[in-house]
Design a binder for these strands. Structure first.
Lengths: 219, 219
DNA sequence: TTTTATTTTTAGACAAAACTAAAAATTTTT
DNA sequence: AAAAATTTTTAGTTTTGTCTAAAAATAAAA
């Protein structure tokens, strides 16, 4: 599917806010996109009609599987261009963002895959942020304690922090293993514990455990 | 000055048509831009207000010095990106145009100059078309008989076809020498002779002479 | 639980760039 | 030079994405 530049900017911003703050409200989006709340309502209505996001008023937006896939594609383009600018054209690493904001909207898949190959399939951009691969997967595992998402973003467990018998015992008991699909449902500020959905059931895991479970995103 | 994508496409098309056919009418432009004549009237009004072109109804459009400068900048971007796509990303030479149509609208001067340097300041794009330098000059000399422009595009004589005594005598008599500024004013279909303005006066030169006078554009 | 404050949406307007249909201007043909 | 054909412009719409101002919905505070 093809999107307008504006639609792409919305998808990207929602994705980033979802990662950073979990909750994405109309006002929050308005602030990051430097637009008025009324404009946000208009555009998100459109994205909702296209099934790119879900929305519950006074609660927040979150991207659908489709929307997340699109966002990751845009982020991939952005970060690959940043890598190109810094590595090949010798831009300063802190000087690439603005130009990449324009380049990211050029959507030719062939172009991006060739650029990726030309750069040697880099895993990180010049700021150290991970570059999604051509299937939208971010290779770099991330601690679920750091993905501060409240909503249904599906992840796959790909690594655990250490091999201590105690950790493995706990993981076994909770039925969490490499390849398990899970999504973070709720975060509790009090003790930073998480409620996650795994194997069709909701379970709670402590912050300490969360710090030792690494996940990657589904495309 | 910054232009919208649409304005840039108009400037570019007018430039190319001016080169190829001399005369650029509303309908001609409509055909090449795949737009309706009414749309052309609207946009050219805008470009005229911005002093990027001149226009006489039923005669044609031609770019002002400003407009030509802008067009050459866009063409420079387009051709540099084409060179990049073909040389570095290994695109087929006949497969680069469409993507370059998008890339050409990214206007960062720094980006383009760095890209130029990275490619080693190429003089031609993969189709063999000359790439304007960062001052808007096209290095490749062109025969004035081939620049089929009817209007005031200022050129500078930079080379003559051969050094025969007869040719040099004629050039001397007409006061045409390397560095002379001239512009083609009129073309006669009958014998392909040209009326050109040089040293503040109008003179006529034969097709045979025109074939042996090479010019480059002023920026 | 009522009032107050905040958040979100609606309604209506605007600018850009395109369109259609019709009118006007100019050129070409007879 | 009048009629016919062509070219160009005008007038009015449409779409996209934004805006302002006001209304409505919800959450927070008293």
């Amino acid at each position: 599917m093809k999107f307008t530049n504006s639609e792409e900017n919305y998808l990207k911003s929602i994705f980033h806010l979802q990662m950073q703050q979990g909750n994405v409200s109309t006002n929050t989006l308005a602030a990051t996109l430097k637009a008025k709340p009324a404009s946000i309502t208009d555009m998100t209505k459109k994205l909702n009609a296209k099934k790119l996001l879900h929305y519950k008023p006074y609660y927040g937006f979150y991207l659908s599987t489709e929307g997340r896939k699109a966002a990751l594609e845009i982020i991939r383009r952005h970060r690959l261009w940043e890598a190109f600018l810094a590595e090949k054209l010798e831009f300063q690493w802190d000087d690439v963002h603005e130009i990449a904001e324009e380049l990211e909207h050029i959507s030719s898949k062939k172009l991006i895959d060739k650029l990726d190959a030309y750069l040697g399939f880099p895993k990180f951009d010049p700021h150290g942020d991970p570059i999604p691969d051509n299937k939208g997967k971010i290779k770099e595992p991330r601690k679920i304690s750091l993905l501060q998402m409240q909503t249904d973003v599906p992840c796959i467990v790909c690594q655990v922090g250490n091999d201590s018998a105690e950790l493995l015992e706990l993981l076994k008991h909770k039925k969490i293993s490499i390849g398990s699909k899970l999504s973070v449902k709720k975060r509790f500020e009090y003790d930073h514990s998480l409620e996650i959905k795994i194997n069709q059931s909701l379970i709670t895991i402590s912050n300490q455990l969360a710090k030792n479970v690494f996940v990657t995103y589904e495309s």
